[in-house]
Structures are given as structure tokens and as C-alpha cells.
Design a binder for these strands. Structure first.
Lengths: 199, 199
DNA sequence: ATTATCTATAGATCTATAGATAATGC
DNA sequence: ATTATCTATAGATCTATAGATAATGC
């Protein structure tokens, strides 16, 4: 039984972190309070000293999941010779497909977000806007950047959703591979001023 | 209390149809047996004379949802001057976004399919293959048709998922509109021999 | 006589609460 | 003394089953 305020803050962070993972794996309504608390090394009774309701945890967990989400992809682009390709390759990698718990919340929680409360939806929208802005920058401006950025984000999101759901490994790999290739094709990179990130 | 065999078959179809709608709206685990039976005009007790388990209904409902799904889009292309544009415009319409219950199961049930049993996953994969094949045909062959078809399907699926989840009507409309536009751009139609459907 | 559906309920599971326990921190 | 966590449980909800009821169909 931990007891100091410091330990409580630590427990809180651990609960949110565990929930952010489990909810990306099983949906926001998937894991029960008891299961989450157990995975955080606690018993379920203490939950309501940390959160007013389960929905409050959902809101915090979705926020944590989105924050974690873009981090990994921004890392992947740093110092890369071709930052756009690095981003796309990491997003559409078998590793990302096979580990939804630590991956992009826009894909993992899309269906849930559409039926969630206002807090969750606001966090979700902000994350979508961040992805679009990030892609616009990686594409380096030019004609129709925003259109091309939106098309790139939606095809990556759709590809990951479908690649996770199909029960055929070859088809799943093919989907990831072909979408990676299509995002490197001339059309989606048109006028991309690659070396500089400025618009 | 209906009683003939004919009425039973009718009840069965009605239960599956209601479930196919509700599960696309709320996920396969959303609606309870009692809620589905009530919407079908029955009481929950009779459910297990129609299905061995709730999972059996999920399998039938997902199959019904996918069957219904492509129908509407194939209709939209019949007799259209530009069948590809007709398909894309219907798929990425505000009407489709706002009525998931009668829309594409690949989007609505993607997250659920990834964690569902073998029957559901097999049905889901078959539907993804049908969408890819349909798009290949609409694109009329040419270099990289399969790649372009896969990219088109994933961007439509991703666009619909995200357009439904964001809580800003302008952003949602923009996503649908820009992806519609990007699928009509030269690159995605390259070498498309439009009037004929042959490869 | 058979059977499709209904009423009633068992058993499991889930969110949330109440009160006990065992640390921290003045 | 305060408080973070624990044990125990209330109340709601969900899947599944049992037995009654009221039609069909030989």
C-alpha cells in the first residue's frame, strides 16, 4: 500500500498509461476498471480516488495516447535524408501494424471517437490537425499541399486500419507496401522542396 | 406471437438486419441482445432459438452488413458517364458519413474485425478484396492499377473514419472534399481507359 | 403434436460506493 | 491527523437458460 502524495501521482500516471495502451488495443470500452487497475499493480477499489468516473479516465487516456502517438513519428523523421519517406515508412511498418497499443490513436480509436463525449472528440480532432500540419511540412509546400497532406493522412490511416483487420498476412503486407509506394510516387510529392522544411 | 416456419425465417432475417445496422453504428459489442430483439419487434428470450450464441449473430450480421455495403456503390456507378467519379463521390458523400448504419462495413467495423473471431475476419477480408477488385475495374487497368486501387480504397476508408470522428463540420467536409478531389487527379487515373471496363 | 415466442430468472460481469487498514507527514 | 490503497459489496446490465403460452400444421 503506497501512501505519499508522490506515490499517488505516480499511480495516477501509471493507470493512465496502462489505459492508453489497453484502450488502443481493445477500444475505449474494452478494458474494465478492475483489469486496468490490476495491470497498474493496484486493486479496483482505489480507482475512484483518482477519477470521478470511468469516462474521466477515457478522456485522460485518449489524450495520453495521442500525445505519445505523434512523438514516435516525429523522432523517425529527425535527421533522415528523406523525412517524408521516413515518416511514411515508419507509420506503415509491420511493427506499427502489429503493436496498436503503442501506436497511432487516430486509427486505433477512430470508431470510438465518433461516439465518444466532447472531451475525447476535441482531443481527437486536434490530433488529426497535427497530423495534417506535420505532413504539409514534410511535403515542403507547393501546389495543393493541404490536399496532398490530407490525402496522405487518410490513406495511411485507412491502410493501417485495414492491414490490421484482414486475416491474410500477404494481403496485409501488400496493402502496407503499396500505400508506402504510392506515397512516394511523383504525384503525392509534386513540387516538394525536400531539403528545406519551409513553406 | 408469430408461429409458422415462414414467420420464423422472417424474424431471423429481421434480427440480422437490425443487428447489421446497430453494429455498424455502435460496434459489434455495442448493442445487447435485448436491445436488438426489441428493435426487431421481439422479446429477448426467443433469441437463442435463432442463434447458438451472440457471436453467431455477430458473424451473420457482419456478413449481411458487407453484402449490403457494396450493393449501394455498384448501383451508383451503373450508367454513370464517369463510373469511378460516381463511386468515389458516393462513398465520400456527407450522406454516407452521416449514416454509418447503412454504409460501408470496412470502415464501420474495421477496429472490431481486427479483434473478432475467424468467421468475421474471413468475411471482412473478402469484402476488402471485393473493394480492391471493384476499384481496379473502375480504374480501367493500366500501369500500377492494383497499387492505385489499393491506395484509393485505403484513402476512402481512412477519410470516412476520420470525417466521422472529428467534431468540426468544416474540417470533416474538407477531408471528404479533398480526398474526392485527390482521387480525380491525373495521378490516380493515369492511363485509365474510362469508357471500357476491360483491362 | 409441434414449435415460435414470451415471461422469469440464474449467474457472470461491470461501475461505483462504503468502511477498514496502514502508511505518510505535521 | 490525514490519506492512498485495500476488502467487500450494492445495484445495474448482460448473456444464456427454463418453463409457460399460444399459435401452426399434420
Amino acid at each position: 500500500m503506497g501512501h505519499s502524495r508522490h506515490e499517488k501521482a505516480d499511480s495516477h500516471r501509471r493507470i493512465v498509461k496502462v489505459a492508453a495502451r489497453k484502450m488502443r488495443e481493445s477500444g475505449t470500452e474494452g478494458p474494465g476498471v478492475a483489469e486496468i487497475m490490476k495491470a497498474a499493480g493496484l486493486t479496483h477499489g482505489g480507482f475512484y480516488k483518482h477519477f470521478d468516473s470511468r469516462d474521466d479516465l477515457v478522456a485522460e487516456a485518449v489524450e495520453a495516447a495521442t500525445a505519445e502517438g505523434l512523438e514516435g513519428f516525429e523522432e523517425a523523421t529527425e535527421g533522415a535524408a528523406d523525412p517524408l519517406a521516413a515518416f511514411v515508412d515508419r507509420y506503415l511498418s509491420p511493427g506499427h501494424r502489429d503493436d496498436p497499443g503503442s501506436g497511432c490513436a487516430v486509427v486505433a480509436l477512430g470508431a470510438d471517437a465518433a461516439r465518444a463525449d466532447d472531451r475525447v472528440r476535441a482531443v481527437y480532432r486536434a490530433q488529426v490537425e497535427r497530423y495534417i500540419a506535420e505532413l504539409e511540412e514534410l511535403m515542403g509546400g507547393g501546389a495543393d499541399v493541404r490536399r496532398r497532406a490530407i490525402a496522405a493522412v487518410t490513406s495511411m490511416v485507412g491502410a493501417l486500419l485495414v492491414a490490421r483487420a484482414v486475416d491474410d498476412a500477404d494481403l496485409s503486407d501488400e496493402i502496407l507496401g503499396e500505400v508506402r509506394a504510392s506515397l512516394r510516387s511523383p504525384a503525392s510529392r509534386r513540387r516538394a522542396a525536400r531539403p528545406s522544411r519551409s513553406r
